[in-house]
Computed example of a mutant assay.
Amino acid sequence: MPENDHPRVTPVCAEVIAAKAHVVLDTGTTELAGNGTAHRHPADTNVPEICDEPAAGRAMDDLAQQLLNTADRDIQSMTGNRPNVRQTSGRPV
């Protein structure tokens, strides 16, 4: 990869099936997969989007946690210091 070229982060699959979601992220050097599920209470009205959205969000959250853990390990292996990549400048975590 050229020195000034940035790795590409491309979602390979973002698929919601019923109340299950599976998301794959391929950075070119690492591939991570996140999974999420959601369940509708039997007494609730059957609105698939209301169940699909939390499942997709949970899959993306799972993927985000894995990506942050990978970044932690990579930084620590290069610097010897334990990083805190979970700090944000935008929304609070």
Score class of each variant (00 low, 15 high):
79 T>K: 09
33 A>Q: 12
3 E>Y: 05
17 I>E: 15
56 A>Y: 00
33 A>C: 10
48 P>S: 09
58 R>N: 02
36 G>T: 03
87 Q>I: 11
70 T>D: 11
68 L>S: 03
51 C>R: 11
79 T>D: 10
67 L>C: 12
91 R>H: 08
13 C>R: 13
36 G>I: 02
8 R>G: 02
73 R>I: 06
48 P>G: 06
27 T>F: 13
30 T>I: 14
38 A>S: 13
45 T>R: 12
24 V>E: 05
83 P>K: 01
23 V>A: 01
83 P>L: 02
88 T>G: 09
73 R>N: 09
52 D>R: 12
15 E>R: 13
52 D>G: 10
14 A>R: 06
27 T>H: 12
14 A>L: 11
21 A>F: 01
54 P>K: 02
37 T>Q: 15
47 V>W: 06
6 H>S: 06
52 D>V: 03
12 V>I: 10
26 D>W: 02
61 D>S: 07
4 N>Q: 10
79 T>V: 09
20 K>D: 05
67 L>N: 08
63 L>N: 00
16 V>Q: 06
10 T>S: 08
11 P>C: 04
64 A>E: 00
63 L>A: 00
43 A>C: 06
7 P>R: 07
82 R>Y: 05
23 V>N: 00
78 M>Y: 11
62 D>H: 01
90 G>A: 07
89 S>K: 04
89 S>L: 11
35 N>E: 14
50 I>E: 14
73 R>V: 08
66 Q>T: 02
78 M>R: 12
70 T>P: 03
66 Q>C: 05
69 N>C: 13
63 L>F: 00
34 G>N: 00
81 N>H: 10
6 H>N: 09
85 V>Y: 03
64 A>L: 05
26 D>V: 02
35 N>C: 10
82 R>W: 03
43 A>I: 07
52 D>Q: 12
83 P>R: 01
17 I>T: 13
1 M>S: 13
75 I>M: 01
54 P>C: 04
87 Q>E: 15
41 H>E: 14
1 M>N: 12
7 P>C: 07
19 A>D: 10
82 R>D: 12
18 A>D: 15
48 P>N: 05
44 D>Q: 04
57 G>A: 03
19 A>V: 05
5 D>E: 14
87 Q>S: 14
29 T>F: 09
18 A>L: 15
31 E>A: 06
70 T>E: 14
28 G>C: 12
72 D>N: 07
5 D>R: 07
37 T>L: 15
85 V>E: 13
57 G>F: 00
11 P>H: 03
82 R>G: 04
78 M>L: 12
80 G>M: 04
55 A>R: 02
74 D>N: 09
26 D>P: 01
15 E>C: 08
83 P>H: 02
48 P>R: 06
78 M>A: 14
83 P>M: 01
74 D>M: 09
22 H>P: 03
17 I>Q: 13
